[in-house]
């Protein structure tokens, strides 16, 4: 934040700007990359920590917690994925844990990390956007990997010709081939795009609401009015944060379930 009080628009724009290097297509959002990588390392670190003292008998606290998550994901996969594929559970597990953690960054008070970062770098205008899932690049990356797997398994289980047949004869039979191609193409493309945009949109909107709530205190709480606006901001922030816990979990879950369902459809030989 600059020395003089920023306007509401400036405040929001500042928060929506990634910390980046490069230009044009070759721009790298450093905050997105580093935060998501750190969260990934957190997962691996905790897994390695627990993994070194696994208890077959009665599991302790942290192991119990992780086991219940694993059980939950495993059950979800088994319910909607009737095929045998050793990749699916780790994939679903990664999506659920990673997306949830990245979404969770949203619940950290919105100015905390940017402010710390600005103090640390000594640059009062330094950008930092710590929620990787409010960056379309992250959600699209996840969706593209899932999409690549969908295509790979489609070709693997239906054969290349079989997969092309889906484009030609689905959903209206052989007399409307041009329409079929367009329809199926849209259907397939819609999968990764809807995956990416749904997650991005939900978390982005949530983040935006947090910003607007933060603006109450930032712009209106001047002098005696602060006695009214500051508690209101606190109450609204708390309410939205509690609601947001539900949203971040739900979005992580939806991303995982849709991934499983798309892959199950790809395994289906008689489409």
């Amino acid at each position: 934040m600059s020395a003089e009080k920023p306007s509401s628009v400036e405040y929001i724009q500042h928060h929506l700007q990634n910390n980046y290097v490069g230009s044009g297509f070759w721009t790298f959002h450093l905050d997105t990359i580093i935060v998501s990588a750190m969260l990934g390392m957190l997962i691996i670190g905790v897994a390695a920590y627990v993994g070194r003292r696994l208890e077959t008998g009665v599991p302790g606290g942290l192991q119990n917690f992780i086991e219940s998550i694993l059980d939950f994901v495993d059950k979800t996969v088994r319910e909607s994925f009737p095929y045998r594929n050793p990749l699916i559970v780790p994939l679903a597990l990664t999506i659920f844990l990673w997306v949830w953690l990245m979404n969770f960054m949203d619940l950290i008070p919105i100015d905390f990390f940017p402010y710390m970062f600005q103090l640390l770098t000594g640059n009062p205008d330094a950008y930092l956007k710590i929620v990787p899932t409010t960056d379309l690049n992250t959600t699209l990356a996840l969706a593209l990997v899932v999409f690549a797997l969908v295509i790979y398994y489609n070709v693997k289980f239906k054969g290349f010709v079989g997969y092309m047949k889906v484009f030609l004869f689905h959903p209206f039979g052989k007399f409307l081939i041009p329409v079929n191609i367009v329809m199926t193409f849209i259907e397939e493309i819609a999968k990764p795009i809807s995956l990416a945009l749904r997650l991005f949109g939900n978390i982005f909107a949530g983040e935006l609401v947090f910003m607007l709530i933060a603006l109450i205190g930032g712009t209106m709480a001047v002098g005696a009015a602060a006695l009214f606006w500051a508690p209101l901001q606190a109450i609204l922030d708390l309410g939205w944060a509690i609601f947001h816990i539900l949203i971040i979990t739900l979005q992580a879950f939806i991303f995982m379930v849709l991934t499983i369902v798309y892959l199950a459809m790809a395994h289906d030989e008689a489409h």
Partner: peptide, 10 residues
């Protein structure tokens, strides 16, 4: 908000 090379890293 625009899509760029970050997606490759991700």
């Amino acid at each position: 908000m625009n899509i760029n090379a970050t997606v490759i890293i991700q």
